[in-house]
Design a protein around this nucleic acid. Structure first.
Length: 284
DNA sequence: AATGACTTCAACCGCTATATC
DNA sequence: AGATATAGCGGTTGAAGTCAT
């Protein structure tokens, strides 16, 4: 077995190592990865332990072929996020597909989709896609009479931040306090030498095309749902690719948001465009 | 059956982001 | 505010599996 300069094991994991790591995570929980090798009694680096757990040992990992709707979602989201050079693209996409890891999605993209320009196949020539049901949001019209939450315009006017959309029952301040995850549009230079991350300064809102504003909104939606807010789990045979999150200004004309009425959660997305058109494969 | 080419994906590496002091 | 430690990401690699001849 190969070892690095510090004598730490590298390469494929053995069954015994997997068991040790799993026992350790079961006992201490995920996180504090720098402590894991010692706790587990493994001669591995923290990165290796983390990766092994997240990509292989975690109990909710879904293995096997990607089904048709997973592929469809990957292609659409990659088109949407990839075109805009969104940082953390693979983890964002993976966050939309239960049981799939960022590494899985990335590998799948590199080996299947990218090479075959949209056609997904398994080894050799056998098709690898199976059909399952998915839940898609019903596209709706976001009328001008809908009123944004009180702080919405403030959010839009922050010079160095993208405006954020908050799920129901969460104020913007709550969200700022609790969420450290931010979706950023990468400002990388074409020249790799200058490839340092730049502060993101979006152009003034009025200069953007309507569709760009919607793209931004959609990006924020992805960020929020990644935190697990507002997730609705569908029936077992359905893939929850969209969660019920209220859009900005989804309220009555008095500006009062509504999401729960008579105990029923309104599970819809309100957009002024059809998201499924937005992420569609057609360039029209 | 042998073997070379090709494909896949688990794992590594280098980097940036974030947290803590 | 700056330094350091830790976490997490995307790009890449290479061993192992599969296919074609």
């Amino acid at each position: 077995m190969e070892k690095n300069a510090r004598g730490v094991r590298k390469g494929a994991w053995t069954k015994a190592e997997d068991i040790l790591l799993k026992k350790c995570i079961d006992k201490y929980g995920e996180g504090r990865w720098h402590l894991v090798p010692h706790r587990a009694g493994l001669n591995r680096c923290r990165k290796s332990c983390r990766l092994r757990w997240l990509n292989y040992l975690r109990p909710d990992i879904k293995r096997g072929y990607f089904n048709k709707d997973e592929v469809d979602l990957i292609v659409r989201l990659h088109k949407l996020l990839g075109n805009r050079q969104v940082f953390r693209i693979w983890s964002l996409i993976a966050g939309r597909i239960p049981g799939r890891t960022a590494n899985d999605v990335k590998n799948f993209w590199n080996t299947h989709i990218q090479k075959q320009s949209g056609e997904s196949r398994c080894r050799g020539s056998k098709p690898m896609i199976t059909q399952t049901n998915i839940i898609r949001p019903q596209p709706r019209i976001f009328s001008k009479q809908h009123v944004a939450p009180a702080n919405w315009s403030k959010e839009l006017n922050k010079p160095n931040e993208l405006p954020k959309i908050y799920p129901k029952n969460t104020s913007s301040t709550d969200h700022h306090a609790s969420s450290s995850k931010t979706l950023k549009i990468d400002g990388r230079d074409e020249n790799p030498k200058n490839n340092k991350r730049q502060p993101i300064i979006p152009p003034p809102l009025e200069e953007e095309e309507e569709v760009d504003e919607c793209m931004r909104w959609w990006g924020n939606l992805l960020e929020i749902t990644e935190n697990g807010d507002g997730i609705l789990f569908p029936q077992e045979d359905q893939v929850p690719i969209m969660e019920p999150i209220l859009s900005p200004g989804f309220g009555d004309q008095n500006g009062k948001d509504y999401g729960v009425e008579d105990g029923i959660i309104l599970s819809c997305l309100e957009l002024d465009v059809d998201v499924w058109k937005l992420v569609s494969l057609d360039d029209h």
